[in-house]
Amino acid sequence: MMNCKTFALAATAVTLACSAAADTSDKRIALSNNYAGNSWRQAMLTSWETVTGPAVSEGIVAAADAFTTAENQATEQAAQIQNMILEGYDAIVLNAASPTALNGAVKEACDAGIVVVSFDGIVTEPCAYRIAVDFKEMGRKQVEYLAGRMPDGGNLLEIRGLAGVFVDDEIHAGITAGVAEFPQFTIAGSVNGDWAQDVAQRAVAGVLPSLPEIVGVVTQGGDGYGAAQAIAAAGRPTPVIVMGNRQDELKWWGEQRDANGYETMSLSIAPGVSTLAFWVAQQVLDGASVPQDLTVPFLEITQDGLDEGLASTPEGGVANVEYSLEDAKAVIAGAN
């Protein structure tokens, strides 16, 4: 690959030719997925198909098969990983049902010389690579944005995710840190929206009567539209609600902007992170030096990018971005 890089400066076409001739053309990569039952996971699987399909037909890798367990259970996924070892895959890309319960199977895979790259639902086994999202920063950033919009501060409503899940704890910790950094804000109330619009709407409607005036709503994604509906139904002025990249949220935001110039921001993890994991696995197989822990930036939609984000997000879906080999190299270089 070294001599390819010098050519690549001259022409992009050469890069393609070089990657097609890379050492990974006979390597097979499998995706082990534990759940496919929501729009985010569906988008994740579609992205995997979109990016790995051409990669296989161009001969960059020999195969990139996606497997989803029939039930969302760690023991099922452990068995699935062991079957992949038996099938002789060279790398396993993994969205794990549990950060710890798959460690035994992951260790078996590593011992068999298989590269394991976990993303989104990461595993703690040291031999695996982890592509994590900085969920804490996702929480802190929301408060920072609100501080930019409203220097005087005020009361915030926090909508949390599913209680007891790692992601919920992390985003909440980030929001708490954000409020400590910008003390002009106080969290006046907190409800669990379970990352679902209908649950969030019910929870917000229930807590609203007991709350003082709210200037902002900090969220975790999948709950902004429900919050907006509940607040409108209560006849209160609409606060700045941070959105989470879901299509219904972006659509509502667009309508409000056109009607009264409403401004906010939207951020969430892109389901296409599965494709980043694919390229990272390919790079490891190619012999690149990759640190065990990588952080992927979250996908942010600003006021200016709203139309573009809305146009590219399918009805009922999630704003997405798919990663290329170059993006993966940039992420790896940034971490090295």
Partner: peptide, 12 residues
């Protein structure tokens, strides 16, 4: 076998 546990590990 798994080296660690999780409260839902064996529901199946």
């Amino acid at each position: 076998l798994t080296t660690a546990a999780d409260a839902n590990i064996a529901l199946r």
